[in-house]
Design a protein around this nucleic acid. Structure first.
Length: 549
RNA sequence: GCGCCCAUAGCUCAGUUGGAUAGAGCAACGGACUUCUAAUCCGUAGGUCGAAGGUUCGAAUCCUUCUGGGCGUACCA
């Protein structure tokens, strides 16, 4: 039985025994910040004065008097402050937990709460019209970790990248590349006003010349632009895939907008919404009554000149997600899209899907810092720091760690100098060092002929640093479930930092491998359990667990 | 104007249904290697939780107003 359940049960029994059961108090157990306040604390006595017509401390005394428990599990119970009941767990509980962790192994921390339900996270989905930027890097790390977390709590999580490979922007890309292509061949062709001006456009044009020479010059301009658009698209997509691969994010699916258009998927959506009465025409355009579902204003689905809007295609896209059997959809969008949430959510509901089956998380912006200064970026001037530059400079582990180590709703200051520092100023190494240290200990012990084994005398673990370490390890399952359900993914790296910290302290005060073989084995078991927790956590974060540093 | 995000130590940030003396890391200062990795550990210092009200036994946390910063408010994608 989980220790929290045990404590809740004995408290409930005591309340019943004292005839306080009818007050219907929800038992809430808290982990006190101070060690002097025990391992768990309950405030039940402070919730009862109105019902019992007694002072909270008096009630606490009654409850403690009425408690009946196993002294191996609970060492002592104290009343403190205004009426807190503090539980101090016995060492026996902690000792046996080490074996539980070793037995669970790579499964430790996981649960089957999600019951195998299919959920999807769509993220990055950057336009294939330019290199990935830093916000994409943040979104990629966050989305990847989210899916890992969902899988850890028993869902079947899918990663999807939506590829906007159709429509106006691809046309503009083709026109831009074509113009640069001609320019490089000393011919004249205007770069469209709203086209793409970045250096990478020239690079693509150059590559095309290297591959195919000047054969496109002879084509009519329209054909050339069209073909250049497709070539550029293929190249951009390829580089995005390589980038994600390098970054360790493996999408289960890259869904192409062009597929939707080929199938005329938007027609079905229009038909469906029309039948449900959410469509009207005005000034030659087709509108969706999104205001009926809380949007600020109604939205256009088909423009005056008869083209489907991006929004309409996007609705059709989201419909396919439900058609493909996903029960819950998460979209990770950039901060510039939050105005878009209300209309998409309205569309989901209009199509008859539950409003809470669709959830958008806004991944807030990233400020890149170098030498303590925010790097100003301007799309127009083509001064964008690309994801690739950052990854190459600071490395995958550091980048991913920095991106998930913060609340996703908060703006993120990414200090490039700090992230690439291979020193104690860099928090990534603090965690990884703990793991490397563990590997080193296990190797050392192995050379001495001592290995952790099944029959380690765990009852020899009695030191406070050992207790604190075990207590920290035991919080992995809760941390994972909490991170998964609240989407506060940053609590996982925070937690792992705690584990590393408690481990380093334990290491400092106690020799693991000593002449006392029995004690060495017990401590090796504890070290091994720590390794499991760190490695499982690193796995979810997608950072490596180095064996030496 | 309206909407969203943010404001906690010098810096970057935690702070779990409202709980006990608001915590880490870095930076600063002082210590600890004859040892399984000193990329570590220990200690000191550092705070009007942006401001003002309110709710109550109790507020960084909930409510209102205000200030300051970021972003958004397309028949673009």
């Amino acid at each position: 039985m989980k220790i929290e359940n045990y404590l809740t049960k004995i408290l409930n029994d005591a309340l019943t025994h004292l005839n306080y059961g009818e007050a219907n108090i929800d038992i809430y157990l808290e982990r006190p910040k101070l060690e002097a306040h025990g391992d768990f604390s309950s405030n039940v006595a402070m919730l009862l004065p109105a019902f019992a017509k007694k002072a909270p401390r008096k009630i606490a005394e009654e409850i403690v008097e009425a408690l009946s428990y196993d002294p191996n599990i609970i060492e002592k119970v104290e009343i403190a402050g205004p009426g807190f009941i503090n539980f101090f767990l016995g060492m026996g509980y902690y000792q046996s937990s080490v074996k539980d962790i070793l037995d669970a192994g790579i499964e430790f921390g996981n649960s089957d709460w999600g019951a195998g339900r299919k959920i999807q996270v769509e993220f990055v989905s950057a336009n294939p019209t330019g290199p990935l930027n830093v916000v994409s890097a943040r979104a990629a790390a966050v989305g990847d970790v989210m899916v890992n977390l969902f899988n850890a709590v028993g869902f079947k999580g899918y990663r999807e990248f939506y590829v906007n490979d159709a429509g106006r922007q691809i046309r503009l890309l083709g026109e831009s590349v074509s113009a640069r292509y001609m320019e490089l061949l000393d011919k004249k062709e205007d770069l469209p006003e709203e086209g793409y001006h970045g250096e990478y456009v020239k690079d693509i044009a150059r590559e095309i010349i290297e591959q195919d020479g000047d054969k496109y010059v002879r084509l009519p301009i329209g054909d050339r632009q069209e073909q250049m658009g497709q070539i550029a698209l293929t190249k951009m997509l390829e580089s995005q895939r390589e980038m994600m691969d390098l970054y360790g994010v493996n999408f289960d699916n890259w869904y192409h907008e062009s597929e939707l258009r080929k199938q005329n998927a938007q027609e079905q959506v229009l038909q469906d919404l029309k039948e449900k009465g959410y469509i009207f025409e005005e000034e030659g355009a087709v509108w969706f009554k999104s205001t009926e579902f809380g949007d600020d204003k109604d939205r256009v689905l088909v423009t005056q000149d008869g083209n489907p809007t991006y929004f309409l295609i996007d609705i059709a896209y989201h419909k396919t997600k439900y058609d493909r059997g996903f029960e819950k959809l998460y979209d990770l969008w950039g901060p510039d899209h939050h105005g878009y949430i209300a209309r998409m959510s309205a569309a989901i509901q209009a199509m008859g899907y539950p409003g809470d089956s669709f959830q958008v998380e806004i991944i807030q912006q990233v400020n890149l810092l170098r030498s303590g200064e925010v790097i100003k970026m301007s799309k127009r001037a083509g001064k964008i720091i690309e994801m690739q530059e950052v990854i190459e400079e600071v490395g995958v582990d550091a980048a991913r760690f920095f991106f998930v180590n913060r609340k996703i709703t908060s703006h993120l200051d990414f200090d490039i100098d700090l992230a690439k520092k291979q020193s104690d100023e860099n928090p990534v190494y603090y965690l990884q060092y703990a793991h490397a240290r563990i590997c080193s200990i296990l190797n050392f012990a192995h050379e001495k002929g001592v290995d952790p084994d099944e029959d380690a005398r765990l009852d020899l673990l009695k030191e406070p640093e050992e207790k604190n370490l075990i207590a920290a390890l035991l919080q992995l399952p809760d941390t994972i479930s909490k991170a998964a359900t609240s989407l506060d993914i940053h609590i996982l790296p925070n937690y792992l930092h705690d584990v590393a910290s408690v481990f380093h302290r334990f290491y400092h005060y106690h020799k693991v491998v000593s002449d006392d073989v029995e004690l060495s084995k017990a401590r090796l078991a504890l070290v091994k359990a720590t390794q499991i927790v760190l490695a499982n956590g690193f796995g979810i974060l997608g950072i490596t667990a180095p064996e030496r540093m």
